[in-house]
Design a protein around this nucleic acid. Structure first.
Length: 480
RNA sequence: GGCCCCAUGAUCUAGUGGUCAGGAUGCCGGCCUUUCAAGCCGGCAGCACGGGUUCAAAUCCCGUUGGGGUCACCA
């Protein structure tokens, strides 16, 4: 790669499952680097596993990346100078390369049976040796007519391969530790370690940021570049995300896919913010806008140790963004959850209502359910019977009724005037706000917890507030 | 098991030879208060261990221990 041109980064998920949060972080870091350096971010689908790849996963990954706001300059649904960006469509390229390697004796055909391979592996393990292919067919010079066979890459048997890792520094691998890996399967399909090299090379990828789990593949890939006469990209291996118990993150730890977090009501900027901070730091800063991430991102600040997923910290970050994003955006993102709960409020009303509860909500779903009472019809409001018994006793009902009469003649129904009138009314009777706050709240929200009383009344409006108070009183009397 | 990576409070981390080891989440306590949150203030809690190097080590080196990754005709 020519080192002085704009970087080309890629994210290359395989559509064999949901977009995982680890994958999302990989995508994020590559995207950040590309955006920061004014480079190109490419999306490529590694669907060489014919058995497990599914178009619906592909759609889902694309949808989730879009939701996160990680846009690509080249890739599926977008095109680009190196199309196609789906490995299943790049077979011709791979075939040429295999033939070339075969011709130059950098690869060879192998007819070893799976059974033999398993046996070798088992025995090596038992003897405490590296369980590798023994090179049985390496020098047999088998031709194309040798029957069912795979093609293996001829790995150098001595020497050292050095990976100059951008996050970990130089890492040395003894070539004898690596075996002649399969590059083309019996069924003619190509393997990951092979196609990833070809594609990165053909697509002019200059740097590869990926998970630590790829580290041990890297020397094999470097040797492949060498055999192809190509210059490898720079590699950077990021520590993995572990579960809260330090074990590999799995479904047993709860939600692990981006889609699951979206469905639970998390905000994309919160997920991005949290993901970025897991394994990367910029001094003491915890909260970052996406623009700030782009501005401050640097490879040098990526940590080396694996991190543990903390849903508590994510919740905190999410809550921060719940409170601090423009209410119009919060409201827009809440729309699917409103629909899901069968609520169809007027948009302006919804925005005002959501604004009253967002500071006490840890996610969108929670926020919508907290604001739900605003959207129900006044006579269908569900009222908590226990709260009614506790706060709507005869004396309280009496006070609420009197106060309601006072409020009914109020002209400008807003927080300030409500506060004035109510405080004045309380003052005259030498009462505390405490004495009527919960009774009124129960009447207008049906619940014992809710947003501030004055803002609740304002958002609900005069008619609806008074109607709810009347209903509440009536129902409390019926219950008594 | 071989190879590779890693190691600051429960968790995420700042730190790059001289700091009272800083911040954040969580937890505990207080303030505020119309409920619940939010917010504000305070507290508990850490350099895995053992050797070196150095006038001086969380910082450098070696070892131990621990954790993780990987050894597929998966990616």
């Amino acid at each position: 790669m020519s080192r002085n041109q704009k970087p080309r980064l890629r994210f290359a998920p395989s559509p064999t499952g949901h977009l995982h949060i680890g994958g999302a972080r990989t995508a994020l870091f590559n995207w950040l680097l590309a955006r920061k350096e004014g480079g190109t971010f490419i999306l490529r689908l590694e669907d060489t596993d014919r058995e497990r790849s599914r178009p619906e996963f592909e759609d889902e990954i694309i949808r989730d990346l879009r939701w996160l706001g990680l846009d690509w300059d080249e890739g599926p649904q977008k095109g680009g100078p190196h199309a196609p960006y789906r490995q299943s469509e790049r077979g011709a390229t791979y075939q040429r390369a295999v033939e070339d390697l075969l011709e130059r004796a950098q690869a060879y055909r192998c007819t070893c049976s799976m059974g033999r391979l398993d046996a070798i592996r088992k025995e090596a393990m038992a003897q405490g040796r590296n369980p590798h292919y023994d090179g049985h067919c390496r020098d047999l010079h088998l031709g194309p007519d040798c029957g069912p066979h795979v093609v293996r890459f001829k790995m150098p048997q001595d020497g050292t391969t050095v990976v100059q890792d951008m996050v970990k520094g130089p890492i040395f691998f003894e070539n004898q530790e690596m075996d002649d890996f399969v590059i083309r399967r019996t069924d003619g399909g190509y393997t990951y370690n092979f196609v990833v090299v070809l594609d990165d090379h053909h697509m002019g990828i200059t740097a590869v940021l990926r998970g630590d789990d790829h580290l041990s593949n890297t020397p094999k890939q470097v040797q492949l570049y060498e055999a192809l006469g190509a210059l490898p990209p720079r590699f950077g291996h990021m520590p993995l995300i572990l579960g809260p118990d330090g074990k590999r993150l799995s479904k047993r730890h709860g939600a692990t896919s981006v889609g699951a977090y979206r469905d639970m009501g998390y905000l994309p900027q919160a997920l991005l913010n949290y993901l970025a901070r897991l394994g990367w730091a910029h001094g003491d800063q915890e909260i970052f806008t996406v623009d700030q991430l782009v501005e401050f991102f640097s490879l040098a600040a990526i940590g080396k140790a694996a991190g543990r997923w903390s849903s508590e910290k994510l919740d905190w970050v999410n809550q921060y963004w719940m409170q601090n994003l423009p209410i119009t955006e919060i409201s827009r993102r809440a729309a699917p959850f409103l629909k899901e709960m069968d609520l169809n409020p007027d948009p302006a009303m919804a925005e005002a209502a959501l604004d009253t509860v967002r500071s006490r909500s840890h996610d969108l779903r929670d926020m919508v359910s907290r604001a739900r009472f605003f959207f129900l019809s006044d006579n269908r409001l569900e009222m908590d019977p226990r709260a009614m018994r506790k706060f709507l006793k005869p004396a309280a009902i009496q006070r609420v009724e009197e106060l309601a009469a006072e409020l009914s003649i109020l002209e400008s129904w807003n927080q300030e005037s409500l506060e004035d009138v109510i405080h004045g009314w309380l003052h005259q009777r030498d009462l505390k706000l405490k004495s009527i706050a919960q009774p009124i709240r129960i009447c207008v929200t049906g619940q014992r917890v809710g947003p501030g009383l004055f803002e609740t009344l304002e958002v609900l409006g005069k008619d609806r507030s008074l109607a709810r108070i009347r209903n509440g009183i009536r129902r409390a009397r019926e219950q008594a």
